[in-house]
Structures are given as C-alpha cells and as structure tokens.
Simulated scan of single mutants.
Amino acid sequence: MADKPTITLSEPIELGEKVITTVTLRTIKTKSMRKISAAKDDFETSFQMVCAVTGLADEEVDELTVGDFTKIAEAAADFLPQEASSPNTGSSGGASSQTSPAS
C-alpha cells in the first residue's frame, strides 16, 4: 500500500497535556463507513469521515481550525476507496455473491 498522507495542522490541537501537530490518514473500516453513511447532513458526514480517517476523537476534531478540518476532509475524500463513493455501492445489498451453475 502507498504511503499514508500526513497533514501538518496550521494550529496544534491542545487538550490537557496532549498536543497534536500532525495527523496521518489511515484506511478506514466498515464500521466507520456505517457511521459516515448514517450522518444526518453533509457537515456531519464530513465530521464522521475526518474522525474515521484520522483516528481522532470527536472532541479532538472539534478543536481543529476550519481550514485544517477542510484540508483533512478533502484529503480524506481522495483517500477513500473509489468503491466507497460509487453511486452503485450497496445497490444489491452491498455484498457480492457467487452462484454455482445449476447441475
């Protein structure tokens, strides 16, 4: 797999003694895609996507500047597998199946 993109934040996230200056995008799992698809609106979809691809908690994403949030959301959309954004995904229940020829 290619290198995972790393984004340097324009303003560090500081929560308690924890300081985050960069985030590395990661491959997301199906459970994250379920949260993303259950979002009520476009912003919530982006919020859940940023949480999923960065591994940041909700309260950490809440502390991102709007510019950093947008930069991560745009990078995350490019980082998602093409199948995840395909309009045909899920049209047959989201799973493919193989059938055996009739004897």
Results as ranks from 00 to 15, higher is better:
residue 16 G to F: 12
residue 16 G to K: 09
residue 16 G to W: 11
residue 18 K to I: 09
residue 18 K to Y: 10
residue 19 V to Y: 08
residue 19 V to H: 09
residue 19 V to L: 08
residue 20 I to S: 12
residue 20 I to C: 13
residue 20 I to A: 13
residue 20 I to P: 13
residue 20 I to K: 09
residue 20 I to T: 15
residue 21 T to R: 14
residue 21 T to C: 06
residue 21 T to V: 08
residue 22 T to W: 02
residue 22 T to P: 07
residue 22 T to R: 14
residue 22 T to C: 08
residue 23 V to L: 04
residue 23 V to Y: 08
residue 24 T to K: 12
residue 26 R to N: 09
residue 26 R to C: 07
residue 27 T to H: 10
residue 27 T to M: 04
residue 28 I to F: 13
residue 28 I to H: 11
residue 29 K to A: 15
residue 29 K to V: 10
residue 29 K to L: 13
residue 29 K to M: 08
residue 29 K to S: 14
residue 30 T to S: 11
residue 30 T to G: 10
residue 31 K to I: 05
residue 31 K to R: 14
residue 33 M to W: 06
residue 34 R to Q: 10
residue 34 R to G: 04
residue 35 K to Y: 06
residue 35 K to C: 02
residue 35 K to G: 04
residue 36 I to K: 07
residue 36 I to Y: 05
residue 36 I to V: 14
residue 36 I to W: 03
residue 37 S to W: 03
residue 37 S to G: 06
residue 38 A to L: 13
residue 39 A to C: 05
residue 40 K to D: 11
residue 40 K to G: 07
residue 40 K to I: 01
residue 40 K to V: 05
residue 41 D to H: 12
residue 41 D to A: 05
residue 42 D to Y: 04
residue 42 D to I: 01
residue 42 D to E: 11
residue 43 F to W: 11
residue 44 E to L: 02
residue 44 E to S: 09
residue 44 E to Q: 14
residue 45 T to N: 01
residue 46 S to A: 11
residue 46 S to F: 00
residue 46 S to W: 00
residue 46 S to P: 00
residue 47 F to I: 00
residue 47 F to L: 07
residue 48 Q to W: 02
residue 48 Q to Y: 06
residue 49 M to G: 07
residue 50 V to Q: 01
residue 50 V to N: 02
residue 50 V to T: 03
residue 51 C to H: 05
residue 51 C to F: 01
residue 51 C to W: 00
residue 52 A to T: 03
residue 53 V to W: 08
residue 54 T to L: 06
residue 54 T to K: 06
residue 55 G to R: 02
residue 55 G to Q: 01
residue 56 L to E: 06
residue 57 A to H: 12
residue 57 A to L: 10
residue 57 A to F: 12
residue 58 D to G: 11
residue 58 D to R: 08
residue 58 D to E: 12
residue 58 D to W: 03
residue 59 E to N: 15
residue 59 E to M: 11
